[in-house]
Every structure is written in C-alpha cells, then in structure tokens.
Simulated scan of single mutants.
Amino acid sequence: MVSDLYAMTFKAAATQDDIIGEMMNPDIFQYGDEAMHAWMEGRLSDDIVAEQHKVEKAELIIFQFPLYWFSVPAILKGWIDRVLTQGFAFSPQKFYDNGVFKDKKAMLSFSTGATQSMYRPDGINGDINVALWPLQNGTLHFCGFQVLAPHIFWSPIYCPVEVRTAMLEGWRARLRGLMSEKSLTFAPSEFFDLSFKGGFTMWPKLKEKQKSEMYGLTTGHHLGKPLPPDNQLKALPECESN
C-alpha cells in the first residue's frame, strides 16, 4: 500500500477540522486530548482514519522523503502529527519498547541535497546520527516500532546517471531482504526509573557502570561521552548490543 501524500493533497495542519462533532473542552482547544478522545469515539476525520487503517494492516512502513531542513517535509510532519494520535499510536503505559507498534517494523528512506562527507562528525552539517535521533527514536521507536537502519540516497541530484542507477539497484537489492534485517539498538525501558518520583531517568547503577565505557549508550543517551559510532545508521551485532 502506498500513500502518496502530495497526490492525495493530504492536509498537513493539525486543526479542529480533524475532530468530528463537539469538542470535549470548547473553551481551550488542546489538539492532543481532543484527537485522543475522537479516536476513542470514532470521531476523527476520514483522511486520518484511512491512514490509521493502513498502519494497522502494515507489517513494515517505509517513510520515503527528501530531507528538508534536517527533517521531513511539512506534509509528512503533518501525517505524523495527525495520524499517530495518542491512544492509537502511544499511551502513557505503552511507549518505546513497550509501545503500541512493537510488532511492526518501520524505516526512513530519504535523499539529501548535501554529500555524505558533509554529514559526518567532522563535516559542516554535523553528524547525521544526531539529525536522525528525533525521528527514529522520538517518533518511530517511541511508538514501539522496530526501527530498521535508514536507507540514504546521498545527493542524487548532483550524481551522474550511472551513480543514480546504482543507487536504485542497491535499494532494490536491499528491499528483497528487508524483513529479515536486525533493527537498530535503543536503550530499553528497564534502564530507567519510570516514575514521576524517579523523573524517568536512568537508574544510578547503570549510569555508574556507563562511566567505564568508551562511548555513550546511544546518540541521545550519551551521558557526556563520545557518541557511539553510527548508532542511528546500522544495526549492531548481537554481542555489541548488550
């Protein structure tokens, strides 16, 4: 199944029009709360419901886009904001590795305007792993998805035809074995004190243990140490992920 958001003229802005019927609190419009209740009561707009049905059926979701301003285009951000509503995609009890979509896979496949060297730790744009963390951890992993390593088409507009052809052939080859790939490694929920008293922070014993490690735990949980190389670009062998 394909959702061509531009062809669909998918609405990017999350507004009151997404809610059918009366608002729960008409005096103060809070989109997240209203969308959650509308989802529970079957009152979301038809375009959102149609996309949610696709997500429910999918074993794997590939987000295909050009990298805009180190993120996704507005229309795809709108899809994320509107389709991945609370209740449907996450809840206070179901998030990260205990998330709603923990039995599904997801991945980013995108093109860049800049070259690969520009997105290295010593490149002018900085480490691509840092740019990918909000999308791969904060969106996909947060909803429970098993996140596969991204597929990046580096600066295709400036490549000769034969290089672009090779890019597509490499993508076709990868697609054939995609479902058997190992997912990226993220810090498991049990590493954190999941209480308001504990502040949802890492257990002190784990933080102390991490002091002896060469690198931080993940791109986001670096704990002041050097970032683990390519943490958001490749799956680690089993022996390295523990």
Rank of each mutant, 00 (worst) to 15 (best):
M1V: 10
V2D: 13
S3Y: 11
L5R: 05
Y6I: 12
Y6P: 06
A7T: 13
A12P: 06
A13M: 04
T15R: 03
Q16S: 14
D17H: 06
D17F: 11
I19L: 05
I20L: 14
E22R: 14
M24D: 05
M24V: 06
P26T: 06
P26S: 12
D27M: 04
F29W: 13
F29M: 12
Y31E: 05
G32N: 01
D33T: 06
M36C: 04
H37K: 15
H37G: 09
W39S: 12
M40S: 12
M40W: 12
M40T: 05
D46N: 08
V49R: 06
A50D: 13
E51C: 08
Q52W: 04
H53L: 08
K54M: 13
E56R: 15
I61D: 00
I62H: 02
I62T: 12
F63D: 06
L67M: 12
Y68L: 10
Y68N: 08
F70W: 14
V72N: 01
A74S: 14
A74Y: 07
I75E: 09
I75M: 07
L76E: 11
K77C: 14
D81H: 11
V83L: 12
V83D: 08
L84I: 09
Q86V: 10
F88R: 10
P92M: 01
K94R: 05
K94N: 07
D97F: 07
D97L: 11
G99I: 09
V100M: 09
D103C: 01
A106Y: 01
M107W: 06
M107K: 04
L108E: 00
F110D: 05
S111K: 03
T112W: 13
T112E: 05
G113S: 13
A114I: 00
A114K: 00
T115C: 02
Q116S: 02
S117Q: 09
P121T: 12
D122A: 13
G123E: 08
N125P: 03
D127F: 06
D127R: 08
I128W: 03
L132A: 06
W133P: 06
W133A: 08
W133V: 07
P134E: 07
N137T: 15
N137F: 06
T139C: 14
T139Y: 11
T139D: 07
G144F: 03
G144S: 01
F145Q: 02
F145S: 03
A149L: 04
I152P: 00
W154M: 11
W154F: 15
W154I: 08
S155D: 13
P156E: 10
P156N: 09
Y158M: 09
E162F: 15
T165A: 12
A166Y: 03
E169F: 09
A173S: 03
G177H: 13
L178W: 11
M179C: 05
K182I: 12
K182Y: 07
A187C: 03
A187R: 00
S189T: 14
F192R: 02
F192Y: 15
S195W: 00
G198M: 00
G198K: 01
F200S: 01
K209Q: 09
L217Y: 14
L217R: 07
L217M: 13
T218H: 08
T218G: 13
T219S: 07
L223V: 05
G224R: 00
G224F: 03
K225E: 12
L227F: 13
L227T: 09
P228E: 05
P228Q: 03
P229S: 04
L233H: 04
K234C: 04
L236A: 00
P237Y: 02
E240V: 05
S241C: 02
S241R: 01
